[in-house]
Design a protein around this nucleic acid. Structure first.
Lengths: 199, 199
DNA sequence: TTGCGAAAACTAATCAAATTAGTTAAAATA
DNA sequence: TATTTTAACTAATTTGATTAGTTTTCGCAA
C-alpha cells in the first residue's frame, strides 16, 4: 500500500461520520479525524476546505440518508400505516446515526443548494404520504410541519437523554404518533373549522 | 465608579444571556463576554470556572424561565385552553430568548441537580394541566413527553429557520397544537386500546 | 525508461480561544 | 492604620484550526 491513495472525499466523509456517530458531532475535529486516517491534520486540506465544509457535507449526507430510510419505509404503504412507518424510520435513522442527524440540524450554511434540495425531497415524500387524507394543499403543508416537529422533537430529546422518567420510550413514541394520527382524522373531518382558528 | 465591583455572577450571566440571545449560543465566548464587560478574559475566572460552567448556568436559567412563562400562562386556565396557553408561552420564550433556550437543550452536565430539579418542575406543571383529562397516570406521562416533543421540535426547527415554505408559521403551530389536542380527546375516550398498541 | 507536472503528503509557522500561573491593587475589616 | 481577602491584571501555556512553503509520489508523455 503506497503512501498515496490514502485519502479521498468519500473515505474522509465516512470516517467523519463514524466519529460523529460514536462520539458526538462536537467531538469531531480535524485533529482527531486526521489521527484516525493516519495522516497529519494539514493533509486533509488537500481534500476539503476545512471543518465547516466537512460539517456541511455531513449535514447533506444526513438529510439524504433520512430520505432514504423514510422512502424505504413508505414503499407499499398508505395512510395511517405509512405515517407510522416513516415515523419509525425517522427515529431509527436518528438512533443509528445520531451524529449525522445532529449535523443535519446544525449546518454552517443554510443556503446550500444541495442541502435545500435534499430537505425538499423529504418534504415531498411526506406530502405524498399525506395525500391519502385528501387535505387541502395548505392544510397538508401544515401537517407536514407538524409531523416534522414531532419527529425532530422526540428524536432530539431522546438523543440528549431528555426523557427522565423510567417509562418505555418506544411506547411514548407510538402513542405520540397515534395521537397525532387521530388528530389528523378529526381535523380532516372538519377541516375548514380548524383552518379558521386563530389560536 | 471604582475599578472594583465591576463584576458579579448575576451581571455576568445577564450579559452572557444577551450575547447568546442576540448572536447565538455558539458565538458566546469568554473573550467576547470579557470585552462586553470591559475586563480581560482571565478576570472572569474569579467568578466562574470556565465556559462550561457558564453554559450550565445558562441552561438552568433557561429551564427556569421556561417554567416561569408556562406557569404564568397556565394560571386560571384548564383543559384545552390551558394546553394552548402553555404551548404559546413555550414558543414565546424560545422566540424571546433563543440563546437561552438553546443553552437549555445543550448543557455540559446532564446530571446537575439544579438543572434536573428545574426540568422536573416543568414536567409537573404539564402533568397538572393534563389532570383535566383524567388519563391514567402512565398515559399522562406519555402525553407530557408528546407535548414536549412537539413544542421542542417546532421551536427548534423554527429557530434554525427550518420551515422553508412561505406559509404562516403561527398557523402551523396553532394547527399542530389543536391536532394534538384532538388526538388526546380521541385517545382519552378509548385509552386502553391505545395503551395496548405496539406500534 | 525517464523525467515533468500535478496531486497530495509533510513540517513549520500562525492565529485564535480557553485556561492557568503568578502578581498587584483595591476594598473590607480588625 | 494595618492586615487580609478579593478581584483585577499581565504573561505564559495549551489546544485546535488553518496557512505557507517544501517535498514526495504518481501518472503520463517523450
Amino acid at each position: 500500500m503506497s503512501r498515496r491513495m490514502k485519502l479521498d472525499s468519500s473515505i474522509i466523509l465516512q470516517k467523519a461520520t463514524e466519529i460523529a456517530d460514536e462520539q458526538g458531532l462536537d467531538q469531531l475535529s480535524i485533529g482527531q479525524l486526521a489521527e484516525k486516517l493516519e495522516v497529519r491534520p494539514p493533509s486533509l486540506y488537500n481534500h476539503l476546505d476545512g471543518l465547516n465544509e466537512l460539517k456541511q457535507k455531513l449535514a447533506i449526507q444526513g438529510v439524504k440518508k433520512l430520505h432514504e430510510y423514510m422512502l424505504q419505509a413508505a414503499v407499499g404503504r398508505s395512510g395511517d400505516d405509512a405515517i407510522r412507518a416513516i415515523s419509525k424510520a425517522y427515529l431509527q435513522l436518528v438512533r443509528e446515526h445520531p451524529g449525522l442527524y445532529d449535523a443535519s440540524t446544525r449546518f454552517p450554511d443554510a443556503n446550500d443548494q444541495e442541502l435545500q434540495k435534499a430537505k425538499e425531497s423529504v418534504v415531498q415524500l411526506v406530502l405524498q404520504v399525506l395525500d391519502a387524507y385528501h387535505l387541502q394543499e395548505e392544510t397538508a403543508i401544515h401537517m407536514v410541519r407538524g409531523l416534522r416537529s414531532i419527529l425532530h422533537g422526540f428524536s432530539s430529546i431522546e438523543l440528549i437523554g431528555g426523557f427522565g422518567m423510567p417509562l418505555d420510550i418506544n411506547k411514548s413514541f407510538t402513542i405520540l404518533i397515534n395521537t397525532f394520527i387521530e388528530g389528523i382524522h378529526t381535523v380532516a373531518m372538519n377541516e375548514d373549522k380548524y383552518m379558521e382558528m386563530n389560536d
